[in-house]
């Protein structure tokens, strides 16, 4: 395969777990709550998926366990932020460290265990299409799910009543409240769903990509997701682009090295961050105008005096 094809296959493959987490963070932030604990949800999901697959031999049960385990830390975040009025950023970081520590302790006996995991399931016919086939249609099932979630979330946000309530909660929560909806309940649900999605992203890392559990398996991918939500300007249809840029940069530098091309991996690895900053600079006025207004207290830049 050509370099472009190899890199794009890698971009989708490596981008997919981050895309799940990005979808999850996007749902949470649309309700007006930032969850820096997404990394912790990914880790809980990865461990739960791996442990369940070791115990039962079923990756599908593993994915279900990952969704539940990913939702748990997010619910704790909801409790602290929504009910106890904790600082969102500080509490999110605390949730991340909690997840890192708890999964490291609980998972230590699972290091080195083997699983069968999720294999590649090429989609008949579609995967035969030249160029696009291997890039988009020859992955594990979770990758297809991550891709389908982008339009599904768009449809949910903009075409359903519940999506409207979610968006309204993130914008001006007194409005849904006036119509009889509880912003508290919406935020709990949004955070739980977001944590579950991040957990599934962790499951994909453990079950499909690495077939491994080690502590800190995610190595910061949950934080990338938080940045990618801003990059995507809170729009589900833009999230895949950001996630694939992350996966593509990672894949490109490895593919170039394997071809003996001298390029600094340190430099290339900053690509997703550089792109996020660039996107913020270029789109900042537009991005800020698209930002759920409920986040402005958390995210507003320092105001000019």
């Amino acid at each position: 395969m050509s370099l472009v094809e190899d890199v794009l296959v890698g971009a989708v493959r490596q981008g997919s777990p981050v895309l799940f987490a990005t979808h999850g963070e996007l749902v949470a932030e649309r309700s007006g709550v930032v969850n820096l604990g997404t990394e912790g949800s990914m880790l809980c999901g990865a461990l739960a998926a791996f442990a369940t697959t070791v115990a039962t031999g079923s990756p599908l049960l593993g994915i279900a366990a990952a969704a539940a385990a990913g939702a748990l830390p997010a619910l704790l975040h909801a409790f602290m932020v929504v009910d106890r009025g904790a600082n969102q950023l500080a509490n999110g970081l605390a949730i991340f460290f909690l997840g890192l520590g708890v999964t490291a302790a609980l998972g230590s006996s699972l290091v080195g265990r083997q699983i069968n995991g999720l294999g590649v399931a090429p989609i008949p016919l579609l995967s035969e299409i030249p160029f696009a086939g291997p890039i988009l249609f020859a992955h594990d099932v979770l990758t297809y799910l991550a891709l389908l979630l982008a339009p599904a979330l768009w449809w949910f946000l903009y075409r359903t009543r519940w999506g409207l309530v979610l968006r309204a909660t993130g914008e001006r929560d007194e409005v849904p409240f006036a119509y009889g909806h509880s912003p508290r309940r919406v935020r709990y649900l949004a955070l739980a769903a977001g944590g579950a999605l991040a957990g599934i992203g962790g499951a994909q890392l453990a079950l499909a990509i690495t077939l491994t559990w080690v502590e800190d398996l995610t190595v910061g991918r949950g934080f990338i997701a938080v940045a990618l939500v801003i990059f995507a300007a809170w729009e589900p249809l833009r999230a895949p682009l950001g996630a694939f840029i992350f996966g593509g940069a990672l894949s490109l530098q490895l593919q170039l090295q394997a071809r003996g091309v001298g390029i600094s991996p340190f430099l290339l690895e900053t690509a997703p961050y550089v792109l996020t900053i660039l996107a913020l600079v270029v789109l900042s006025s537009r991005a800020v105008s698209r930002m759920p207004r409920g986040l402005s207290a958390v995210f507003a830049g320092a105001q000019r005096a």
Binding site: M1, D6, G10, R13, Q14, P17, L205, I209, T210, T212, V214, D216, L217, V219, R221, L250, S251, L254, Q255, Q257, A258
Partner: peptide, 15 residues
């Protein structure tokens, strides 16, 4: 120790 990146690196070498 970044297992996902290790997987990608291994794949790129085998590619």
């Amino acid at each position: 120790c970044d297992p996902a990146k290790q997987a990608a690196a291994t794949n790129s070498l085998i590619d």
